[in-house]
Lab assay of single mutants.
Amino acid sequence: MQRVNMIMAESPGLITICLLGYLLSAECTVFLDHENANKILNRPKRYNSGKLEEFVQGNLERECMEEKCSFEEAREVFENTERTTEFWKQYVDGDQCESNPCLNGGSCKDDINSYECWCPFGFEGKNCELDVTCNIKNGRCEQFCKNSADNKVVCSCTEGYRLAENQKSCEPAVPFPCGRVSVSQTSKLTRAETVFPDVDYVNSTEAETILDNITQSTQSFNDFTRVVGGEDAKPGQFPWQVVLNGKVDAFCGGSIVNEKWIVTAAHCVETGVKITVVAGEHNIEETEHTEQKRNVIRIIPHHNYNAAINKYNHDIALLELDEPLVLNSYVTPICIADKEYTNIFLKFGSGYVSGWGRVFHKGRSALVLQYLRVPLVDRATCLRSTKFTIYNNMFCAGFHEGGRDSCQGDSGGPHVTEVEGTSFLTGIISWGEECAMKGKYGIYTKVSRYVNWIKEKTKLT
C-alpha cells in the first residue's frame, strides 16, 4: 500500500490518463441519441435557420407576430419608411378606419389613436360632414345658397324668414311668412316636400332668348283662358290664391305678392273693366268669414305684352289694390325667389296649380277651390304637342294621358313649387288646347323671366 501511494504521488498524470480511459469505455446513459432527441424537440425550422439574422431580410411573422416588435424591426421587413409607417399605425392600436367614419364618399386613412378623412370636392370637416359648395344638395341650405369668396357655403332665406341657429334652416321672422300653410287642420295635408338634388348652379339658368321682337298675326285659340281631375282644397291650404270678379264672377285667378299687390295673367284683364279681388276665398257660393274683398285701382301688364300681336306672350300683369290686405292664416303671400332659384325650383319637376275653373272641358265651374299636382314636361315634348308657338318664356306641365289639367277660369292662378315646406311661385296658368285632352298640356308663363320686374313694381313704400 505504501508503494502504491508513492507511485500516485510521483505520477499524477498517469492516474488522470487511467481515469479518462475508464470513462470513455463506459456506456453513456444520461444523453439520448440524435434521433430520439429530435422526437422530443420537434420544432419547425425557421426561415433563416442556421444563418445569422443580421444578414437576412426581415420576416413579418418572425419579427412582429411571434413577439412584439419595434418600429426598427418592422422597418427591416418593409425596407421602406412609408410602408412601415402605414403598417405601424394599425399594428400599434388597430384600424381606426374600420367603422368607416368618413361621410359623403370620403376616404379614410388610419393613424395612431386617430384617423384622417380625405374629402371629395365640396366637403370638409373631420368626417367630411361639412358642405362647402352650393353645387351639392344646395349646400344643405333649406332655401338659398351662395358661395363666399373663400368658396364656403353661405345660406340665406327669402323675405319674412331668418336663418336658424344651425345656419342652414329657415324659420319665420314674421307672423305670416310667405308660402307657408298655417291653418292647423290643413298642415297635415301639406304636399310632399321637395329635397334639393345635386345641381350645376353655374349652368342652372337656361341660355334662352326671349323672342321679344317676333311679330306674329293673332292666333285663334280655343278655350285658351284655361282644375280638371283635381281635388277639393281645404280652407287655408292655398292662402296665396285669390279669385278675380268682373263682368262675371271667378273669371280668373291670381296670387298675393304682398298686402297691396296681386300677380295674374295679362290676358285676364281689360282696361276700363272694374275688377274686384277676393282673398281668403274657399267656396265661392258661401260666406265663410275668411274672405277679404278689395278693388283694383291700377293694372300693370308687362311692358312687352301686346294682345294685338299675341294674347299669351309675356302673359303676366300686376294688380294694385285700393287697401292693403290683412295677412292671416287664410290670406298669405306666395314666396318669389330670384331668377336663378325660381328656375331651379321649376326644374324640380312638379308643381301645384289651383283655381275655381271648370271641372271638365266646357263644363261647370268649381264651387270649392280645386288643386292638382302636375309634372313638368320637357321642352321637346311640349313643342311636338301643339302647332302653336311655345315661346321661351312659357313652359308645359300636365299629363300625356289627359284627364287632369287646369281649365277655363283658372287662368292667372299660381303654379307653385314647394321647397322644404315653403311654396314659391314658378308659373302662372296661361293657356292650353281644350282641357285635359290626351297628348295636350297646360301652358304656363315662366315666372323666372319676370321676377325682377315683379319685385321692382310691387315694392311697398
Rank of each mutant, 00 (worst) to 15 (best):
Q2F: 08
A9R: 13
S11T: 13
S11M: 13
S11V: 14
G13F: 12
T16D: 04
I17C: 08
C18V: 13
L20W: 13
Y22P: 03
L24M: 14
V30P: 13
H34N: 14
H34D: 13
H34W: 11
P44K: 09
R46M: 01
N48P: 03
G50M: 07
E53V: 00
E54N: 00
F55C: 04
M65G: 04
M65T: 05
F71G: 02
E72F: 04
R75N: 15
V77I: 14
N80R: 04
N80F: 02
T84Y: 02
E86K: 08
E86A: 14
F87G: 03
K89L: 08
K89E: 06
D93K: 09
N100I: 07
P101Q: 05
G105R: 06
G106H: 03
S107V: 10
D111N: 11
N113M: 10
N113L: 09
S114G: 12
E116Q: 13
E116L: 13
W118S: 14
E124C: 05
N127T: 11
C128V: 02
C134Q: 03
K137L: 13
R140M: 09
C141Q: 00
C145L: 02
S148C: 06
A149E: 13
K152N: 13
V154T: 11
C155L: 00
E159G: 08
E159V: 08
R162W: 07
K168N: 07
F176A: 05
T190S: 13
R191F: 09
A192I: 08
V195T: 07
P197N: 06
D198W: 12
D198M: 09
V202S: 12
A207H: 11
E208Y: 15
I210Y: 06
D212E: 15
D212N: 11
Q216L: 12
S217E: 12
Q219G: 15
S220W: 08
F221D: 14
F224A: 11
E231M: 09
D232L: 10
A233C: 05
P235D: 04
Q237D: 06
Q237Y: 09
P239S: 03
W240M: 01
N245W: 08
C252T: 01
C252L: 00
G254N: 00
W261K: 01
W261A: 01
T264K: 01
H267E: 02
T271M: 14
V273I: 09
I275Y: 07
V278W: 06
V278G: 04
A279G: 04
G280F: 02
G280R: 02
I284S: 08
E285I: 10
H289V: 15
V296T: 04
I300T: 04
P301W: 07
H303M: 08
H303T: 09
Y305H: 06
I316W: 01
L321D: 00
P324V: 04
Y330N: 05
V331M: 01
I334G: 00
C335W: 00
C335P: 02
A337K: 00
F345E: 01
G349D: 14
G357M: 10
G357Q: 15
V359Y: 11
V359H: 14
G363Y: 07
S365V: 11
S365F: 07
S365D: 15
A366W: 07
L367H: 15
L372P: 04
R373T: 08
T381K: 07
R384N: 15
K387N: 15
K387Q: 13
T389R: 10
C396A: 01
A397I: 03
H400T: 15
E401I: 09
S406T: 15
D410V: 12
P414H: 12
P414I: 15
H415L: 04
T417A: 05
F424P: 01
I428L: 10
E433W: 05
E434I: 08
M437A: 13
I443Q: 04
Y444A: 03
Y444F: 14
Y450M: 02
W453F: 05
I454W: 00
K455R: 12
E456S: 10
T461W: 07
T461N: 14
T461I: 09
